[in-house]
Design a binder for these strands. Structure first.
Lengths: 130, 130
DNA sequence: ATTTAAATTGTTATAATATAACACTATGTA
DNA sequence: TACATAGTGTTATATTATAACAATTTAAAT
């Protein structure tokens, strides 16, 4: 269904780094890690990040200014995201819950308005840290 | 019930500014606006902001790096927030929905974990901008 | 194949957001 | 009074992000 999107060189380098990372990465940490691949300036990183977010390949964890690869194999263009964040170890997990996304998609505010785009960040302690 | 919290001088100055503002304010905009009151350095602003957030008097809109006074008169210490954000005019409104907060408080992730703390930001177009 | 538009890249400089470290002062309470 | 805690003031610096401009690559359409 979804058209295959070919990533550009920088986009691919940066996506690969984020995708293989076990934790969300920050922009300047990404920059540091891809300098050996010829990406030298912050803007090169931010441009790739912007595009990857737009494509739904990665998500930005707003409260942490960090980026994580999309865990929903199906979501090429995801504008409706939910995460759990451990306040001790900073482990971050994308939540894929059909009922949650259904509830939020159908939620109406007091003006009767619905929203197809949202970002939800839950905070607590992960299994290990409890 | 809730113990009255007396704000310090800087906290009160900064809270008053945010509270009377019709839109979320950014830290350096706040700094600029309180310089005539003797608050000269970013750190003075950020310290007051941190405390006000901790007290639930204001909330941070993470996707905008901006601060808004709490609209829920009752919520002295609110760690469970929801906002709607207009992507055109940037109008931001705090959502107070008992059913939404109930749903999210009771939401269990796939490990069965519940979260009393969360931040939800809905994006769309406000009435005027539609 | 050649043209053209759109996307991407490279680069320098700078803007905007946020915290570290240290010294000092005020406030509440034992 | 003295003690602990919270708040203040200050300088410096760290971190996150974008502006502006020129060049190159890519895709697609003649």
């Amino acid at each position: 269904m979804n058209k295959m999107q070919t990533l550009s060189k920088n986009q691919q380098i940066i996506f690969d780094l984020i995708d293989k990372s076990s934790e969300p990465l920050k922009a300047y940490s990404i920059l540091f890690n891809v300098q050996k691949k010829g990406i030298k300036a912050p803007l090169q990183v931010y441009r790739a990040l912007d595009k990857l977010v737009e494509l739904g390949k990665i998500h930005k964890i707003e409260s942490r200014n960090a980026f994580i690869a999309c865990q929903n194999s199906s979501c090429q263009v995801s504008k409706a995201t939910a995460f759990s964040i451990c306040e001790i170890c900073e482990k971050i997990t994308e939540i894929s819950s059909a009922s949650l996304s259904k509830y939020l998609r159908n939620f109406k505010d007091k003006d009767g308005m619905k929203y197809s785009k949202y970002n939800l960040e839950f905070f607590g302690l992960c299994k290990k840290c409890r």
